[in-house]
Design a protein around this nucleic acid. Structure first.
Length: 470
RNA sequence: GGCGGCGUACCCAAGCGGUCUAAGGGGACGGUCUGCAAAAUCGUUAUUCACCGGUUCGAAUCCGGUCGCCGCCUCCA
């Protein structure tokens, strides 16, 4: 397996520190609002990578932080006259709703910043002891000049950054690039006791403290959006490696942006759709397929047209999944031979995705498979093993790894306790009679009227089936 | 100004020196199946990879230049 490592700017063979264990950390949300579809890309891609590692037999521990204390949260909460802690709490709940909506598997842990203040204080103390941090009247800063590798991830040089001079000048800092580890308490802000007086942690320190606490001093994979490379991840490296004298992360993985009309989608530009509003109109499978069809590191230009085509594509897979499932339930099998080589398809899928999580290529293998399976099933009475193998392949790849199909079909009819299904079957029966009497006008009327309310009838040699358009 | 990325058919997109007269998805058009549809299937839709040079027996893939687009350098997935 190969992974492109931002740190070395090369594709490298993936060798975890302690195989088969993989410790993976993905930067999570700052919970001050609903997340948008661009954020969703990172959460979904992190999820897919994790699922693929599981598929490949790794024992993955997957951790995502929740930033629940931060300038933006405090600002918003204060504007609304709410308690910042409660405000964050609310958006944590909303975060989980949207994550579930995207069919992202829950992480093994979601550490929260406010629950790890003491770990952060310990880490800052260590940095102070090592003389890479300095306290100015209750504000504690990291001294970037003391870390010789500063800039190794982003390829930036301290001198050039300084001359760039886009950084706000803070009188208390020795160097404009120094960043806050601990912020002195201000009126109307949450605060915690510390050796430097009351205050709250800086942003970067939480990821260092919590990831090391959950996963140990050296992580196998650390992922996040490309905009985090500098300064966030650069600073994480500085903090963690200065404290432990060990490599913080073996493989840095960064996701490309989701653009809209060729511009980065971001809250500050205001050009975003929330994941929630997208999920109202499109199933998670369509969103996930859209993401899976572009390499994770490349930019992806978002549009509803693309989602439409992704949705259509997922329907090809789910219709095969449905056919196979129904066939297995019917217990009606033949014994004709088939040529489809299931093992070969699975090998192709694995080889494709092993190469730096090339999901687009993996998706192509799945569609090749769909075509091949449909071709075999045409006018053939196939044995049970065919359907079992087809189901197995789709479950392992399209469902468990990519999440672009879901074999749980029975959800549509819960509210009516199956009565809707019976009703439709009665109509199909009546239409069948009309057809037998060559009363095509009536048969077509039944079909058209059902179609108008989103129930699509499909005739085939073995009878009529229906599907409900979402 | 510094650093990085990108430009492949109507749209999206894989491709990392030969198997590329270039995967896969969507769209369009035509055939099969069907009473008609739908679904499925078959076929067509880039001898060419922004442009110009170069390296090589051989380049979409490497190098140089030109044009265009984007990102990071400030909170941001």
């Amino acid at each position: 397996m190969k992974i492109y490592n931002t740190l070395t700017k090369k594709k490298e063979e993936f060798v975890p520190v302690n195989p088969p264990k993989v410790r993976m950390y993905v930067c999570g949300p700052t919970v001050y609002d609903y997340f948008h579809i661009g954020n969703a890309r990172s959460f979904v891609m992190g999820d897919m990578i994790r699922r693929y590692l599981l598929y490949r037999g790794y024992d993955v521990k997957y951790v995502m932080n929740l930033t629940d204390v931060d300038d933006k949260i405090i600002k918003r909460a204060n504007e609304l006259g709410e308690d910042p802690k409660k405000y964050a709490e609310k958006y944590i709940a909303e975060f989980f709703k949207d994550i579930d909506g995207l069919k992202v598997k829950r992480a093994d842990a979601y550490p929260r910043a406010t629950e790890h203040i003491s770990d952060m204080i310990e880490l800052i103390k260590k940095l102070e002891e090592k003389d890479v941090a300095y306290n100015v009247d209750g504000d504690v800063f990291y001294d970037v000049r003391k870390f010789k590798d500063y800039g190794k991830l982003s390829g930036k040089k301290i001198d050039e950054l300084e001359s760039g001079a886009r950084i706000e000048i803070n009188e208390n800092k020795k160097n404009p690039l120094d960043f806050a580890l601990w912020k002195k308490a201000k009126e109307g802000e949450p605060e915690w006791e510390s050796p430097w007086g009351k205050g709250r942690p800086g942003w970067h320190i939480e990821c260092s403290a919590m990831s090391m606490k959950e996963l140990g001093e050296t992580l196998d994979i650390h992922a996040g959006g490309s905009d985090l490379i500098f300064p966030h991840h650069e600073n994480e490296i500085a903090q963690s490696e200065a404290a432990t004298c060990k490599d913080f992360v073996k493989y840095w993985v960064h996701f490309g942006f989701l653009n809209i009309r060729d511009e980065k989608m971001s809250k500050s530009l205001g050009n975003f759709y929330t994941a929630r509003e997208v999920l109202k109109k499109y199933p998670a499978e369509a969103v996930r397929l859209l993401f899976a069809q572009t390499h994770y590191a490349a930019p992806l230009n978002f549009s509803f047209e693309l989602l439409d085509s992704a949705k259509k594509a997922t329907e090809r897979i789910s219709s095969l999944a449905k056919t196979v499932t129904e066939k297995l339930a019917s217990k009606n099998f033949g014994d004709e031979e088939y040529e489809l080589n299931f093992e070969e398809f699975e090998n192709k899928f694995r080889i494709a995705v092993d190469d730096d999580f090339n999901f687009p290529k993996g998706v192509a293998v799945i569609f090749d498979f769909v075509k091949a399976a449909n071709r075999e099933m045409q006018n053939k009475n196939l044995p049970k093993s065919f359907y079992e193998n087809a189901k197995g392949f789709l479950e392992r790849t399209a469902q468990d790894v990519l999440g672009i199909v879901d074999f749980n079909f029975q959800d549509e009819d819960k509210s009516t306790g199956g009565k809707q299904d019976e009703l439709i079957k009665i109509l199909i029966e009546l239409r069948q009679k009309a057809k037998a009497e060559k009363n095509y006008a009536l048969a077509d009327e039944i079909r058209d009227k059902l179609s108008a309310i989103g129930i699509i009838l499909q005739d085939s040699k073995t009878g009529t089936t229906y599907k409900i358009k979402s």
